[in-house]
Amino acid sequence: CHSECLGNCSQPDDPTKCVACRNFYLDGRCVETCPPPYYHFQDWRCVNFSFCQDLHHKCKNSRRQGCHQYVIHNNKCIPECPSGYTMNSSNLLCTPCLGPCPKVCHLLEGEKTIDSVTSAQELRGCTVINGSLIINIRGGNNLAAELEANLGLIEEISGYLKIRRSYALVSLSFFRKLRLIRGETLEIGNYSFYALDNQNLRQLWDWSKHNLTITQGKLFFHYNPKLCLSEIHKMEEVSGTKGRQERNDIALKTNGDQASCENELLKFSYIRTSFDKILLRWEPYWPPDFRDLLGFMLFYKEAPYQNVTEFDGQDACGSNSWTVVDIDPPLRSNDPKSQNHPGWLMRGLKPWTQYAIFVKTLVTFSDERRTYGAKSDIIYVQTDATNPSVPLDPISVSNSSSQIILKWKPPSDPNGNITHYLVFWERQAEDSELFELDYCLKGLKLPSRTWSPPFESEDSQKHNQSEYEDSAGECCSCPKTDSQILKELEESSFRKTFEDYLHNVVFVPRKT
């Protein structure tokens, strides 16, 4: 048989008469490798580009789960590009990614509803959504962080984005990388972005840091009482949809009607710091009717980097990364020049730590249904340095008659930039024990000054392991946590139920 035959053949030295091919099969003959313009397919066939392209389009058009959109890589027609490569849609070739590779997620039936953290986790790592997304989240724990972890990498949506009755959302900033909504599939009414009845939605994105392009379709905003109209108009300008909307697409009466839409800028007039305090004062603000001013709200939190936005980490279910302080308005003076500047002394802060701070007014709604208010920009203030805590785990070892090696770990709280350490030492008198000992005694162990690591005695271990207080009263049991108490109650309830079950099964009433 021919060298490319495997198993047997019907005619000697003829690659077209093989029972099976050793390498690849091409047009009725066995070959060692697939010549151009053919590609290896499933490690035994040679196919042309049209064959591989037909497989790709067949799966793409069917949208069946589990099928493969075949691509070409290293002269092979394979189910998908290997790690580190992405497909070129024009020629199906796998090309190296520039940075992290995109991950295209194809949605069944063309859309997916995100109504819980669990459903959001199914899209973790996706960068391109081939379909439409509907966000409908009523509640949950730590929602802002969970949504950002699972949806934060999405850069492109081919269909539309719909935010509907998501009472738990305060902001859409968890879509931190969303840059493009194509609108290839539109919501009824030709809408590519749809926001309806979101009672706590206050911000779409921080438009000073976020760009969003909507290729096709219109915007729809109705019944978002805490979303200011200025935020919607800003989205029109940034996304390129200005002029597409009709009169009733953006409701003037049901958007922002319960919001404090600040239209003035508060400026800080005085800032002073110490290692654990920050004193702030800002310019006074009074609405047209000074009785509408209820006070100020001061927001602050630790910020290692200057990239904080107002609604980071917030949701309507209680999660809030900001510390909020309510401040009463100052006494009002008739003389504008003698107006008191409101302020606040922030206490209990960490030394040498940068804080993000902003302040906003708290006002009631005027009778004319106009909203007044003022808010400052987010500023960054760093507390002063102070003395560091003591170095940890000092170790001293003498390696000769004239040297001592000293080692330690950095302090747990540096409280500033540590530039150097101060080492103090003092000579001590020799131990009298060394002169009084009889060095001729056998088995004498000389006193040693070398360091030995501390260890816990058996008594201390027994005390720590004991669940009861000892007789001397030195140790006591740790208080039980809520989960331990709940577990004990469940076990007790189970024992009672099981005992009742045994009584009912074992003891049967005697027939009379």
Results as ranks from 00 to 15, higher is better:
384 D>C: 07
387 N>Y: 03
365 F>R: 15
137 I>T: 13
153 L>A: 13
296 F>R: 00
150 N>H: 13
311 F>V: 13
302 E>T: 11
114 I>E: 00
210 H>Y: 15
273 T>K: 14
361 T>Y: 04
353 T>V: 07
133 L>W: 00
243 G>V: 01
301 K>E: 02
208 S>L: 13
294 L>R: 03
147 L>D: 00
166 S>K: 00
392 L>I: 06
400 S>K: 15
119 S>G: 12
314 Q>H: 04
383 T>W: 00
378 I>S: 01
128 V>K: 05
251 A>M: 10
172 L>R: 00
309 T>W: 10
393 D>N: 09
167 Y>P: 15
237 E>K: 12
388 P>H: 13
229 L>Q: 13
347 R>Q: 09
226 K>I: 10
141 N>L: 10
234 K>P: 02
210 H>A: 05
172 L>S: 02
201 L>H: 00
115 D>W: 01
198 N>M: 05
156 E>Y: 06
158 S>G: 05
341 H>N: 14
346 M>E: 02
261 C>I: 03
315 D>T: 07
326 D>M: 07
244 R>K: 13
255 N>R: 03
230 S>L: 04
154 I>V: 12
324 V>F: 13
330 P>M: 05
403 Q>T: 03
293 L>F: 09
403 Q>G: 15
339 Q>H: 14
147 L>N: 03
229 L>M: 05
104 V>E: 13
355 Y>F: 11
407 K>L: 03
196 L>W: 15
285 Y>N: 09
221 F>W: 01
130 N>E: 07
121 Q>L: 11
319 S>P: 10
116 S>A: 04
107 L>M: 07
317 C>R: 00
365 F>Q: 10
340 N>V: 14
333 S>D: 13
312 D>F: 14
147 L>V: 07
304 P>T: 10
129 I>K: 00
168 A>T: 14
169 L>E: 02
383 T>K: 00
290 F>D: 15
193 F>Q: 00
391 P>N: 03
204 L>F: 09
205 W>T: 02
352 W>P: 00
281 R>T: 09
321 S>V: 09
179 R>Y: 10
266 L>N: 00
227 L>A: 02
187 E>G: 12
156 E>R: 02
327 I>L: 04
307 N>F: 09
379 I>D: 00
402 S>P: 02
134 I>P: 00
405 I>M: 02
291 R>L: 07
247 R>T: 12
209 K>Y: 14
264 E>P: 07
222 H>R: 09
167 Y>R: 10
226 K>R: 10
135 I>F: 10
207 W>Q: 03
344 W>Y: 03
349 L>Y: 00
175 F>N: 01
371 T>Q: 11
398 S>R: 03
186 L>E: 07
349 L>H: 00
196 L>F: 03
190 N>G: 13
290 F>M: 02
359 V>K: 01
345 L>V: 11
112 K>Q: 03
220 F>G: 15
291 R>H: 07
170 V>C: 09
159 G>N: 02
223 Y>C: 06
292 D>F: 09
340 N>F: 14
133 L>R: 01
222 H>W: 10
149 A>H: 07
250 I>F: 15
113 T>N: 06
119 S>F: 04
133 L>H: 00
320 N>F: 11
180 L>Y: 09
201 L>W: 04
300 Y>A: 03
331 L>V: 12
379 I>H: 04
116 S>H: 10
134 I>L: 13
190 N>I: 15
172 L>K: 00
247 R>Q: 10
331 L>R: 10
268 F>M: 04
115 D>F: 05
222 H>S: 08
150 N>W: 10
311 F>T: 13
191 Y>L: 04
355 Y>T: 00
228 C>I: 03
110 G>T: 05
197 D>I: 01
263 N>A: 11
200 N>R: 09
300 Y>F: 04
348 G>W: 04
306 Q>S: 13
136 N>L: 11
114 I>F: 02
196 L>C: 06
351 P>W: 03
281 R>F: 15
368 E>S: 13
259 A>T: 11
343 G>H: 13
212 L>R: 00
193 F>C: 02
